[in-house]
Amino acid sequence: MSVSSASSRRVLERGPSGWLAAPALFFFLLFAIIPLAGVFFLSFTKWDGLGEIKLDGFSSWTTVLTDPVTGNALWVTAKIMFFSFIVQAPISLLLGVFTSASQKYRAVLAVLYFVPLLLSSAAVAIAYKALLDPNFGLGPGLGIPFLAQDWLGNSDLVLFVVVFVIAWQFVPFHTLIYQGGVRQIPASLYEAAQIDGAGRVQQFFAITLPQLKYTIITSSTLMVVGSLAYFDLVFVLTGGGPGYSTRLLPLHMYLTGFKANDMGAASALGVILVVIGLALALILQRLGGKNRNASQLEGA
């Protein structure tokens, strides 16, 4: 903050009225905060979605916490989060660097890279379901037996298929973020490095990576927290199967609530989801805390 702005603030005294924030606050309270309280409340009730909601103490919690499927759902969620991150992060970083350069062919490629951004998860899932069909899909089409595996039916493979399809859908978005980040790196840094005789790889590690620190944090946060919301893609692609092998937590919550009609247990799962989201965000914010301060300082 500069001195002049501080003094002028004193002159202005109050700033704009808080009422300007009221409409946003209203919507947010009504459809986010109240439901948030509601999900806590419902986790202590019994409700089959049809009849009355009855208070039921901790019985939903006992059900959820003793059910091995819950543990499995957490484990599947963790695996998908982990693998999605280690697959998506390097690819999007490298593609971001790749597309930020100015060669014509790269610009053309970039146009095509971003097409998956336009598809809904439902569309992507349906397309891949057809594509991965062992009898009528990609494998027999290309005549490569390796590709004619039972991709969605083999419980050892399916998780990686899901990770791949998620990457296919979301790498473009993160590529875009990195592309923007790379383009903001001052050219002078690279020119200096070239004079020093640094090679391409050296430049990447010495300049690009450190310069992208905050972009990496932003993208990683979106990736990790976002992986708690991979509901629709997996729902349409595998329905959580085969068995429980891709039944990740949000999907487990949905199926418990709207298929097995145990809204109490589903709400308990919702609470677990909320807690995990908060914990992750706190951890990531600690890592990226400097980012926010920095951007706020720069603003003045």
Partner: peptide
């Protein structure tokens, strides 16, 4: 059949 667990009966496949 190979891949039975990824075959959907709803699609009559």
């Amino acid at each position: 059949v190979n891949g039975f667990s990824s075959i959907a009966a709803d699609s009559n496949a």
